Amino acid sequence: MNKVYVKHSVVAKIRRFTPWIYANEIDSDPEEFQSGEVVALFSKKDGFLGTAYVNPKCAIFARVLSFGKEEIGKKFFHNRIKKAIAKRGALLHVTNAVRLVHSEADFLPGLIVDQYGDALCIQINTAGMEAFRDVIVHTLKHLLNPSWIEEKSDVHSREIEGLVSKNGTLFGEAKALFELHENALTFLVDIQDAQKTGFYLDQRKNRAICASYVKQDDTVLDLCCNTGGFGIYALKAGAKECVFVDVSESAIEQTKANVERNTLSGESLHVKDVFTFMKEQKYKNTFDMIMIDPPSFAKTKEQANGAKRGFKHLLMESTKAVKDSGLIALFSCSFHVGKKELLEIAMEVSHDLKVQYILLEQMQQDSDHPCLINASASFYLNGLLFRVEK
């Protein structure tokens, strides 16, 4: 195993279990190493620091696999994946779909594994995980005996890593639709066609939190509804009407199917960009509750300012559209627009529209998408639930 030396200034960070080492933090020639190569991390002054894999093509040069001396092979992946699976047991009482492996937070950086019943959907997003592709797939088969494994790796992440896309069925026979059960609701999931790895499992807890505030005969607006999760929870909780809006025609079709599957009614479905929709509708004091859950507006730090302008516009229009003492749930799934930024945006809108926001809930991803406190980027999903006082 080759050694990568890091600068002495980085040692304290690594000893605080920070799992990423950047290219400008190493004291070795990066061109000496291969993409995906497993190395031992050393400091010339402090000695051994951990075991990592590297990619000279990336700004994140090394991702730590272990802060000890471990052989990275079949036994390592078996133990890590088995331990991650065991942590999800409690959630299987409320759902049949969970995230089993969540990258750095399960100490397997670059690997995502979601379980849908007896099927698995995986992402292999880094060169280091790509090097162990066969071991990973073999381990998943051995531990879970799946009927089907679908790969839906993140194309952008793999491109950064210098990898080609390999999405498709890895094992077994693909199924048209999966019936996902969640808190007494059913959602039909087209795993192959859906965004990300099939369904936004990370919002499971937040869907239930928002629904707990819905009153009988409320009117609800679900912006960027995807396949209807928040709005369907609201209808189930007693809302008489929910307006669903998404730019994707297939998402709205899936929303309609999900409403029908749960024998609910009161839906109004719109295939439209949410900015255009809100501009055209000019709602005033119409809704009891509005959910704003857009896709990531800021995949990079450079996109953060534009993203914040988008959030501010949606919050302003939603504030006009909600009734006095109505509720707004605002979500960001980008680390670059976190809780702090959402609160700053709310402060600006509060000033501009002369309204006050009462913060009722602060939300984050569900427990099968854990946050590693040493990796700030793992705090990627943030939500705020406001009561609007006009």
Rank of each mutant, 00 (worst) to 15 (best):
D134W: 05
C58M: 14
D29Q: 11
V98A: 10
N55I: 00
N79R: 15
G89C: 06
R99P: 04
D114C: 04
L140F: 02
D106A: 13
L91W: 13
A105W: 01
V10G: 03
R63L: 08
C121W: 00
A84H: 10
L49E: 04
G117A: 06
F76K: 06
G110L: 00
D46F: 12
N55V: 03
F76R: 09
A97M: 00
K3E: 10
S43Y: 03
Y116D: 07
K75H: 11
A23F: 12
H138E: 15
T18P: 01
A90I: 13
F76G: 05
S43H: 08
V64Q: 01
Y5R: 09
R16C: 09
N24R: 12
I124Q: 03
A86C: 03
R80A: 10
V10P: 05
S43D: 13
V113I: 14
S28P: 05
E37Q: 15
F33K: 11
L120I: 10
S35M: 12
G128N: 07
I60E: 07
L111M: 06
K7G: 09
D46R: 11
P19Y: 03
V135A: 08
K44C: 06
R133G: 10
A86F: 05
G47N: 12
I60D: 09
V54Y: 04
T51F: 04
D134T: 11
I60M: 11
A12Q: 14
E31G: 12
V137C: 05
F61C: 12
D106Q: 07
E104W: 02
D29F: 02
Y22P: 07
R80V: 02
K83N: 15
R88I: 01
E130C: 08
I26N: 00
H78V: 07
D114H: 05
E70P: 08
T51Y: 01
A40G: 12
V38I: 15
V6T: 10
K82F: 11
T18H: 15
I81D: 00
G47W: 03
R80D: 05
I136T: 09
V10S: 14
Q34A: 12
R63K: 14
Q123P: 10
T95F: 04
G117K: 04
F42W: 13
G47C: 10
V38K: 01
K44W: 01
K7W: 00
